[in-house]
Each structure stands twice: as C-alpha cells, then as structure tokens.
Design a protein around this nucleic acid. Structure first.
Lengths: 338, 338
DNA sequence: CTGAAAGCGCTTACAG
DNA sequence: CTGAAAGCGCTTACAG
C-alpha cells in the first residue's frame, strides 16, 4: 500500500508538504498542492489512520458498549449513535456485552487499548472495578440508558416514571388489581428503577406489589419465560404482567402460549420499550416507548462535548405510554389501537 | 497513561525486555519477567494497540459491513461473527450500510484506513468501484450472505432454493395459485436469487409469475409496505405474498392491516428469514430459516484462514421452511404450528 | 511556502 | 539473556 513517502516522491515534494496538503494546512503553494493531489489520486493513496492516531493521540473514534445487540432497542440506539457520530466526523466501534459483566469489561478494555477518544456505555451491572477506574480516569465517558449511581459521569437517559404511572392508571381503569412485573437485574438502574416506579404507581391506588409478583429477569428472553412460568404457577396468578423490556416480553409470550393461555383473555401483558412488531403480535402489545433516536444523538453530543473540551449536559427525556390491546380494553379507553 | 518506557524504568530493564515479556518471548530471565510483571501491575500498564499495530502491521481486527443493523437477521449474524472472532483472538468493527451503497463505501473506506486485517461484507449492491478494487487488492476479504458474481472472493451463504420449493409446494397444496413476491434489489444476489428460485418453483406447477406480481423492494420495511399496497390494488390481488426478507414482511403486514384485511383469510403471507417474533404475530408467520450462527462462524473461519495464509473454503448451507399459519392450512398439512 | 528532523509507542533483528 | 538502535507512517514545531 502506498505511503506518504511514495506520494512525496511522485509529487516531488517532502512528506511534510504532503501532510500539509492532506490536512488542509493553509501555507502550501497552489502548485505544490496540485502536484500532491495528482500524486495522491494516481497512487490511490489513503493515509494510514493507525500512524496518524499514534502521532496525534486522537483516533476520532467513539466506543459504544451496549448491553445486548439482539435487543432491538439497543440496535436502534446504536444506529442513531453511529449516525450522529458520523455527522460529527467520528466513527464508532460497538461492543456487545450480551448482558454479561465480564464481556462488558472485555470490550471496555479492548476499546481503551485502541485508544478511542471517548466511551459511551450502557452498563450491564453496578460497576466493575474496571468501569469505576475508567470513569475516574481522564477518558471521556458518558452513560446512556443505564448508569452507575455515585459516579461522576454525564447520563443520557429516558425517565419512564410518568409513563409507568400512566400504564398503571390504564390497568387500574380496566379493572386489573393483581399486577406483576418482570424486572431487570437489580444491579442496573433500569432494572431497579422500573420496579420502583411500578411499585410507587401501584401504591397510589393502594395496590401492593408482593415479592412473588416480582420476577427476577436479566433483560433477555429466557428469563422472561422463566419468570412468567413462575407467575402462572401461583395459586392466584397475576391479572397482568409488565415486562421491563421487550425481550422479556417475548419470553413471557412464549411461556403464556406454551401454557395454552391467551392474552389478554387469560392474562394481560405490557412491556417497557416499544418495537415495530408489537403492532402485529397477537394481540398488539401495550408498551412504553423511549425516544431512542434523541437519546443516541444527545449521548453523542455530550460525549463529543467532553472530548472537545466543552462541558457536557446530562439529559433526561420522557418516555410515553402506547396503549394497545394486550391488557384488555376498558369502555373508557378512547385510544387508537395502532 | 503509562507507556512501555515507564514500565521499563519501574522494572529497571530496557523497553526491549518489557516488550519481550508482554509478548511471551522465551528468552527472558525469570527474575526480569517477574519485575516487569510487577511493574506492569503497579502502573496499571496496558500496551497501546495503536503503536503495536503500526509496528507489526497487524490490527487483529476484522471489519464487518452489514446491510442493515435494524434487520434482526444481520444483527444475529453480527453477534455470531463477533463471538467467533473473539474466540480466535480478533475484534470486529461493524459498519452499517443501511442498504445504501454510498454508506457501504464509506464504511469500507474507513475500515481500510484503519488497516483492519480482513473484511467481511454482505454487499448492498452489485459492486461499487471501491468494492471491486478492494476485492482485487491484497486485503483478505470474504462475502457473507450476499456476494458479487464474477469476483474472486470466498462466499459463505445459505442456499434457499430447496426451501423456496418447499414453500411453493406448501402453498400449492393449500390451493393457492396467484402468488406474488416482494423482491430485494436486483443488484444484490439475495435480491435476484430469491425471485429466480420462486419463479422456478412456480414453473414446476405450471404457475406463472407475471411482472405485476413482482414487487420491487429494498429489503427495508417501507418498501414492503409500498409493494403490498400495489398488490392489493390489483384487479385480481394475489392469494399469497412472499416477502424476500423479514423487514419487508413487517411492511406487508402494516399495509394489509391498514387496508382492514386479515391474514391468512384475505391474503397469505410468507417471509424469507425467520425471527422469534414470527411465532407471536397474528397469525404466526410461515418463514424460511437460515442457519445464521453457522454462517457467521464459517465466514470468520474463512476470513481468518485467508489472513493467516491458509486456503479458505466457500461454504453454502441449506435454509429450511418453517410452516406456520399465515398462508392458511391444508388438510394434508401435518406440521406443528410453532 | 518548504524541508529536515524529532517523536508518538511499540517490536525485532543485531550484537554482545 | 539483554540492550541500543532502527523503523513502522504519520504530524508539527523549527529554521530558513
């Protein structure tokens, strides 16, 4: 592959001049510039980003560690992150933690070794030593979706509290009283917050959230399946199950169907995170939608601000309830079902 | 961040010795090794991968350019690629082409600039000049899922021909005669092959595939919606629509529902690519499943073989039909509906 | 406007 | 077994 030396030789100038042309440095004569450009073209020269990064100590690359690529929510987030980063002249390298803390650490380490300019993380757990060290280090870092309490890092996330209240109001309005939740890992903020928001909203109606109505999941489908089986085996199964993410809702549907039961007739189902398929499931699923695109853009903006020496803002955006038919219909519900 | 010099100073040895310890070079005294390891530990030293890559001309990184991250099929593929690569000691950087050739080229260029060791591509089109140049260059490259005819690059893919024949047999058995397809871009192999396989299979039953029964899609949901609207506006709409991927099937469902029609009563639907949600849609969708995990692993194996000087094999794996209820039921169908 | 030179952080023949 | 030195491909003060 042609190097800057080859271009310099071909153009009859020094490598310094070639470098200046490539970096749009003002003080280059038009003649020299033209010869360099011609040589670049004819050799098909492309600067070696590795060498450039070593010299400048910048990679123009962002690392994004997401909890699970198989989760459409994170996939949509990753897409908007990449798009926003590209607009600002950055590439992004995605690491998939698969909801496993050790895999998350592996990716953080690899990304750091590659000297990415900044790190966007949706932590899978409460904070490994590596994650905590990184947050304390000089590496620019922003949490997105999930965060680690007590760590001084900007956070970009959605607040689902109001939407959860709306959900509970909706369920209560239909007449449901025994409500259960499949939670994410307590070590994640979204895992614990969604339970707390749910419990609080229930409390407003004087409804309890007994321990056997809290299923412990890990945000993946299998755990939704298992938690649902346990609910269905209860002497008095819940009227409605609220899954704290879309994959656990998928697992819940599997389990309900395997039991030969039907939604919403035998049991209701709602989910955190809205995905396109929820319109077409049997029945369409009531869900809480996050402004995924905005979250991705805001997260990139905060991280790039940090990298480029501006002060970043933490951002909290609202989520909203989308009512469909999976919890039954109340006569007072006038909402559309798409 | 500590560099190799700091470690050398701390351990009282030369940087050469530090490097040898880090790279498990045999000729290092146990005493020196111990001191280096201790220094590495106490400084929290991590070798700079950028510098190492520049020196060794290897990045131990694979590039993966996929057509669309929002497509669960590619997301599953990406996951298995990353896992297989990690096992072999490689990282992978994913580029999302979003089915746009210019974006695909952008990612290929960026990946090449970063000097990835090899490239895995599922081409979005028939081959841009850049893609063709890259294939001819010395950069190790493997096509996965889709490929570019006439280019001498190993291909790892699924052959859906037999499964498409099974699908048409199934449809014919139920009594459907007017069959339509939403195709992917003709410039992609999977775009044209699936139409050809479908046409051939229809031919075996003496059924035609008129032009107005071929919808031109681009593998994304919107195009499935538009193609379906056109089918439904025909004086004699098709009995069944076969979408050449899962996102266009999603779009088709949207359009069918918007018309107030129901599947399979008013019109049947089948899709290429099977995804978990197809079990829970209304109705469950008949689909052709690809061995995604095996494809990812085989692709990585072929690419790493190429990188490490072994001769890679092209691999073609079979896809298989999974019958559900979205095309109606024939009395002779004895298959399960999950 | 231009070039020679130093240096980013590593690895690796070479000499001892 | 060990170290001094060269060099990977760039960028950038410095001097002219």
């Amino acid at each position: 592959m042609a190097s800057i030396k080859d271009v310099a030789a071909e153009a009859g100038v020094s490598v310094a001049t070639v470098s200046r042309v490539l970096n749009d440095h003002p003080s280059v004569s038009p003649a020299a510039r033209a010869r360099v450009l011609a040589a670049t073209e004819s050799l098909g020269y492309r600067p070696n980003a590795v060498a450039r990064s070593l010299r400048t100590d910048r990679t123009r690359t962002l690392g994004l560690v997401i909890s699970d690529v198989l989760n459409p929510y994170f996939t949509a987030l990753a897409r908007s992150v990449e798009e926003a980063a590209r607009t600002l002249g950055y590439s992004v390298i995605i690491g998939n933690a698969d909801e496993r803390p050790e895999l998350q650490d592996h990716h953080v380490r690899t990304l750091l070794d590659r000297r990415i300019d900044g790190l966007l993380v949706s932590p899978t757990d409460g904070g490994s030593p590596l994650m905590l060290d990184t947050a304390r280090s000089s590496t620019p870092m922003v949490f997105v979706d999930r965060w680690i309490p007590g760590v001084d890092v900007p956070v970009v996330r959605a607040d689902g509290r109001a939407a959860v209240r709306d959900l509970v109001a909706h369920l209560h309005g239909i007449g449901h009283r025994r409500l259960a939740i499949i939670a994410g890992p307590a070590a994640t903020t979204t895992g614990s917050e969604r339970v707390e928001a749910f419990r609080e909203a229930l409390g407003a109606y004087g409804l309890p959230l007994p321990d056997d109505h809290i299923g412990q999941g890990d945000f993946q489908a299998d755990s939704g399946r298992r938690a649902t089986e346990r609910f269905l085996a209860l002497p008095e199964p819940p009227h409605v199950i609220f899954a704290a993410d879309n994959l656990m809702a998928l697992g819940a549907l599997d389990a309900i169907r395997a039991r030969g039961l039907s939604v919403p007739h035998d049991i209701g189902l709602a989910a955190f995170d809205d995905i396109p398929w929820f319109v077409h499931t049997d029945p369409p699923i009531t869900a809480i939608a996050q402004p995924t695109g905005d979250l991705g853009r805001a997260a990139v903006q905060a991280l790039v601000d940090l990298i480029e020496g501006r002060s970043p803002r933490s951002v909290t955006l609202p989520a909203r309830l989308v009512v469909r038919r999976s919890c039954g219909e109340s006569p007072t519900d006038q909402r559309s079902t798409t």
